[in-house]
Amino acid sequence: MKAPAFAYEKPDSLDAALRLLADAGEDAKPIAGGQSLGPLLNFRLTRPSLLVDVRGLVEMSAVGDSHDHLTLGAGTTHAAIEDGRVPDPANGMLRHVAHGIAYRAIRNRGTLGGSLAHADPAADWLSVMTVLDAEVLTATAAGPGVHAAAHFAQGPLATVLEPGELVVAIRIPKLSTRARWSYFKVNRKPGEFAHAIAAVVHDPERDVCRAVVGATGDAPYLIEDARPLLRGFDPRWAADHVSAAGLDAGSHAHRVHVAALRRAGAQIGGVQ
């Protein structure tokens, strides 16, 4: 289990990194913490010709704070979020979720942007950023880009990112102080990838009530209007959404995702 040979560059500026990625084409990959890429390399499941190490770039660890958004550099580690070393715009939701990602040794190096770019359907940030209505800020040699988190993943391990496009930061709307959130993750062991995810965010001041059905084997499924969850749990409503998320009605996975949605609804204080 040794990685195949590849070349490596550690550019000292974002521009240089983008140029390297642009010049090398599809065979080049950016690497930050390497916690998703490392295993793939060791299994020889990916064979980049060139790795461009973006971990040290200042843009990757920048924090931007505006009136209604917080922007976290893509290189922000899960551990930095877990420890509260960066602000949490979601009333503790990010800290809670970060603590449940893999293991501390992984969280110390694994990054928010890397996790999103890897787009494992069972990973946490994809579902969380979708329910929070965050935006993925990117850059290419040609200029910056913005993608809504809800449309960022296009399937398992597939995103809208073009070759040479690098995730630079995540812009997350700030929840109001009255906002509530819930996050229900089904896994058998802490740190395991999820078998089911349901996340709900209810922010009355911003008139937002969104839910996500995640870890479906595909991109997270967004329920833009999740108010029915607050009024009481309607199994039919939930089942329809879980079916729309791509799970076969009658399958165990369908049943477990419906249960996750019910429990996430209950946690946020929905009428049961």
């Binding site: 490392g38 295993p39 501390r104 110390n108």
Partner: peptide, 11 residues
């Protein structure tokens, strides 16, 4: 703490 098996020496 970090995993030395999936961290590149060059990094």
């Amino acid at each position: 703490p970090a995993r030395s098996c999936i961290t590149l020496a060059v990094a």
